[in-house]
Nucleic acid binder design. Sequence first.
DNA 1: ACAAATTTAGACACTCTTGTCCAAATCGTC
DNA 2: GACGATTTGGACAAGAGTGTCTAAATTTGT
Lengths: 229, 229
Amino acid sequence: MRASVSPDIFPPRGHEAKRLSIVDAAAGVFCREGFAGANIDLIAAEAGVSRQTVYNHHGDKEKLFMAVVRDLTDRCNVGIFATIATFPDQPGDLEADLIGFAVRLNQNCICNRDGKFLRKLIQTEGERYPELFAEWREQGPGTTWPAIAARFARLAYGGYLTIDDPDVAARQFLGLVNAELQTTFMLGGTPREDEVVQSATNGVRTFLRAFGKSPALGSVKKHTALANA
Amino acid sequence: MRASVSPDIFPPRGHEAKRLSIVDAAAGVFCREGFAGANIDLIAAEAGVSRQTVYNHHGDKEKLFMAVVRDLTDRCNVGIFATIATFPDQPGDLEADLIGFAVRLNQNCICNRDGKFLRKLIQTEGERYPELFAEWREQGPGTTWPAIAARFARLAYGGYLTIDDPDVAARQFLGLVNAELQTTFMLGGTPREDEVVQSATNGVRTFLRAFGKSPALGSVKKHTALANA
DNA sequence: ACAAATTTAGACACTCTTGTCCAAATCGTC
DNA sequence: GACGATTTGGACAAGAGTGTCTAAATTTGT
């Protein structure tokens, strides 16, 4: 993909910068207006670029759209894996550590600009580009969910949790910590930080009531009046 | 809103039928193509009606869109409340009854045509019509979630569950039983029935591990080796 | 069968958008 | 300072879609 000329110097300088600002602006406009409603003139204006430059770089509205989705998928994946790397493998306070992880996942991967945009584009145009979004499904949930599941499996193996099926547990973990944000997500809004923390806290507590190995290790305190050895 | 003439006979006969078939076709097209991409000619064709009739009935693309959302909201609410009425207040087998309820909720309210369409329209155009979707939020989640929460509160009061906050529990219940369907929902797909049952089963099991009062009553069997009185 | 209301089909003006072309201005590099 | 590549702005053709209008056909109730 490099420039094919003599030395390995890339095409000029601001070239790539423009490409990026175009894709960036396009992401915003496609999300706000939908594919059909998105206006190339508007994208160009928001990117601070002439319309012709948009066509020079991407050729075509459809190709531009694809570039946007690919870019977003890549950037989101980077963020998600960086966050998964902070999963508490050997937790001190399991409850607090899982809450922290859930909040980071939300703030860095789901509620940030890229995450919001990618989600909306998938919801909005997913049916129109089956191949493109099949690709996303593989690269996105297809790789990140197992990665999270593996971390939960490790916690179970380490004796911190009692889990049958780590894949199910991972999906339920995500369902729980986002349970109170669904309506906001649906309308395309961004929850406030305290809402994210609240939802994560409630979700993790319930998660640990279901999967926590023993009250002594983790969280389940006031609720289980069930005496145990 | 009645016809203002002599007897209380409504305008002709097929009038209302046409209105409905227009709104119906419009719902489908708006979902597939988005508001901007939706084509009035296409809507008219799919409704089996001339374009002029569409304008006669609804005046305007925007007004037609609003009519679609209102119609869908109403119909979905009817379905949801009908389903909530089947909530197991005095369960025989709590696990099985809750799974049944979750499956009914999914099949009758979330995965059916109206539910799918309404969800997609909210996700797609929610930001463009703040008042309209504020209205939905009040009439939809604003009334159904508390209704579900009340049923869980009743189960707790009846000694079947141990719940702190019924509202949180209700949201988490929904999050859990849908945990495995998220990706499908996101792409606008319809999960197969066995997927719905699977997700509901796993979700309810986890829910009862967290909130079930005692293993004897419900489900938590093999996992809690914790001996109890 | 009659009269009123509704529906239809087609033409129409108008606006908006996409994508192309081109000459002038600008930028980055040597 | 000069050269080559990139960017710019504006004009342009072609197409598509909205909303209106009209006269003819059809349906509906009596």
